[in-house]
Simulated assay, not measured.
Amino acid sequence: MSQPVPPSWKDVGKSASDLLLKDYPIQGTSLEVKTITPSNVTFKVAGNKDDKSGTISGDIEGKYVDFNNGVTFTQAWTTSNLLRTQLELENQIAKGLKLDLATTLNPAKAAKSAILTAIYKQPSLHTRATVDLFKGPTFTADAVVGRDGFLVGAEGSYDVLSGAITRYAGAIGFSAPEYSITLHGLGNMSTFAASYYHRVSKDVDAGAKAVYDIKSTTGGVSLEVGTKMYLDNAAFVKAKINNSGVLCVGYTQALRPGVKAVFGLGLDTTRLNDPTAGPAAHKVGASFVFNA
Score class of each variant (00 low, 15 high):
Thr85Glu: 06
Thr85Tyr: 05
Thr85Cys: 14
Gln86Trp: 07
Gln86Met: 11
Gln86Pro: 14
Leu87Arg: 06
Leu87Gln: 08
Leu89Pro: 02
Leu89Ser: 02
Leu89Gly: 03
Leu89Asp: 02
Leu89Cys: 05
Asn91Val: 13
Gln92Phe: 10
Gln92His: 14
Gln92Leu: 14
Gln92Asp: 10
Gln92Trp: 11
Ala94Lys: 15
Lys95Met: 04
Lys95Pro: 02
Gly96Ile: 07
Gly96Arg: 08
Gly96Tyr: 05
Gly96Leu: 04
Gly96Asn: 09
Leu97Gln: 05
Lys98Arg: 14
Leu99His: 12
Leu99Cys: 15
Asp100Ile: 06
Asp100Gly: 13
Ala102Leu: 07
Thr103Pro: 01
Leu105Arg: 02
Leu105Asn: 01
Asn106Leu: 08
Pro107Leu: 11
Pro107Arg: 03
Ala108Asp: 08
Ala108Trp: 04
Ala108Cys: 10
Ala108Thr: 14
Lys109Pro: 01
Lys109Met: 07
Ala110Lys: 09
Ala110Pro: 01
Ala111His: 07
Lys112Thr: 00
Ala114Ser: 02
Ala114Asn: 01
Leu116Trp: 04
Leu116Gln: 04
Leu116Met: 12
Thr117Asn: 09
Thr117Trp: 01
Ala118Gly: 14
Ile119Trp: 02
Lys121Phe: 04
Lys121Gly: 06
Lys121Cys: 10
Gln122Met: 14
Gln122Asp: 09
Pro123Tyr: 08
Ser124Gly: 10
Leu125Ile: 11
His126Asp: 11
Thr127Asp: 09
Thr127Pro: 15
Thr127Glu: 14
Arg128Ala: 07
Arg128Cys: 10
Arg128Trp: 06
Arg128Lys: 15
Arg128Phe: 03
Ala129Phe: 08
Ala129His: 10
Ala129Lys: 11
Thr130Tyr: 06
Val131Ala: 13
Val131Gln: 07
Asp132Arg: 06
Leu133His: 04
Leu133Pro: 00
